[in-house]
Design a protein around this nucleic acid. Structure first.
Length: 360
DNA sequence: AATTGGTCCAACCGCCCGAAG
DNA sequence: GCTTCGGGCGGTTGGACCAAT
């Protein structure tokens, strides 16, 4: 037996919204905000389900929605993100300013999926239908598993950070409850500025200088440091935190077939060399994977310290794959690997990210 | 002009998850 | 620990629209 419906359906209108209904909904939200969607229809004089009101608002009436044709840049970004995130439309939408997940989903299903298919690329795996990459397909699949696990964690991070932002701006009570009164704009979270992006995997592939950066941080600084403070750079100023970093010396690249977990020693309020002792795991255990769930997000004035670690447990993983390693170690398949590398690089190179992204 | 088939997209549905009681 | 509730998400649908026949 499923849960009861979100509202009493008898007498509720379904189907397309009329301009009058839109007007009522907009006027109400403008005046009172969108606190409880369940209660909103009655208060606003609408014979609609609360869910229907929410959808209409989020996908159509919200004033910050960008409508019209997708630009080439947006198309590329969607494809790139879909390659990494799969059908996580809300996560993809977070990287496209003012586009809704529904719109992106529709655009993917009606345009982009077909286009990729025509190009001979499987729109699900983003691999060529004829497997010209040979054994690298396995690596990509493995990569996807890792990325999925990490994204689960980041999804939670996003939720937490949203609450944190609301809490900081409007007080703790509103962190758990939607804003019910006041300025309309308060309830609208500009996607780009308020949701931490989760594209560090892109930077990893692009060879961002994750490892070669001096592993020190001025802990007294409140300046946001994209290396130490990004959600997935796993910086945490507490002692004895375990975290995982790339296991080779190629900047930003990690072998997906193994991973490292280490212990860091930061000295608080000092510039201190990070010391790490690394353990190597052939494959992440389920226990290890489960620890990725433990994310806390704190906002200490202007510094964002993100810890993706359970202080009481033993690890944190961060999964990236790489292609250049494969190229370097499997000379027999150099050509195929280069093809593979080029495919991903072409995806990544044109990916645009918000200039104000806290990660970059 | 009528019919047919394809495309597009707003809206619905069911499920999941976190919070609250 | 459980149940309930509300919000969010992704998959799917239905109807409007358009081009081809």
């Amino acid at each position: 037996m499923g849960r009861s419906p979100c509202c009493e359906k008898v007498g509720l209108k379904k189907g397309p919204w009329t301009p009058e209904e839109d007007q009522k909904l907009m006027a109400f939200i403008e005046k009172y905000g969108c606190g409880s969607w369940r209660a909103l229809p009655a208060k606003a004089g609408l014979k609609r389900c609360g869910k229907s009101c929410r959808l209409r608002w989020i996908n159509y009436l919200r004033p910050d929605i960008k409508r019209g044709k997708f630009s080439l840049q947006e198309e590329q970004t969607i494809i790139q993100l879909h390659a990494l995130l799969g059908n996580r439309w809300s996560a993809i939408a977070a990287h496209l300013p003012n586009r809704t997940d529904n719109e992106i989903k529709n655009y993917w299903n009606t345009h982009l999926k077909k286009r990729l298919t025509k190009m001979g690329i499987d729109p699900i795996t983003h691999k060529p239908k004829t497997n010209i990459f040979g054994k690298d397909a396995a690596n990509l699949s493995h990569m996807a598993q890792w990325e999925n696990a990490r994204l689960e964690a980041e999804a939670r991070l996003v939720r937490e950070s949203k609450k944190q932002i609301i809490s900081n701006q409007f007080g703790p009570n509103l962190a758990t409850k939607p804003i019910s009164h006041g300025n309309l704009q308060r309830n609208i979270l500009p996607l780009q500025t308020k949701i931490p992006p989760c594209l560090d995997v892109l930077k990893a592939w692009q060879g961002t200088n994750w490892i070669t950066k001096p592993k020190t941080k001025d802990m007294t600084s409140s300046v946001f440091d994209p290396f130490f403070d990004s959600p997935t750079s796993t910086s945490n100023i507490s002692n004895n935190n375990l975290f995982m970093v790339p296991n080779n010396n190629i900047p930003g690249l990690v072998d997906m077939n193994s991973c490292l977990v280490g212990e860091s020693n930061f000295m608080e309020n000092t510039k201190e060399e990070v010391q790490t002792e690394w353990k190597c795991f052939d494959k992440p255990s389920n226990e290890l994977l489960s620890q990725i769930n433990d994310i806390s997000y704190s906002n200490d004035s202007s510094t964002y310290n993100i810890s993706i670690i359970d202080q009481s447990s033993s690890g944190l993983i961060q999964g990236f794959t790489h292609l250049e390693n494969i190229v370097g170690s499997c000379e027999d398949n150099l050509e195929d690997d280069n093809n593979n590398n080029n495919y991903w690089n072409s995806i990544l190179n044109s990916c645009t990210l918000p200039a104000d992204s806290p990660v970059f």
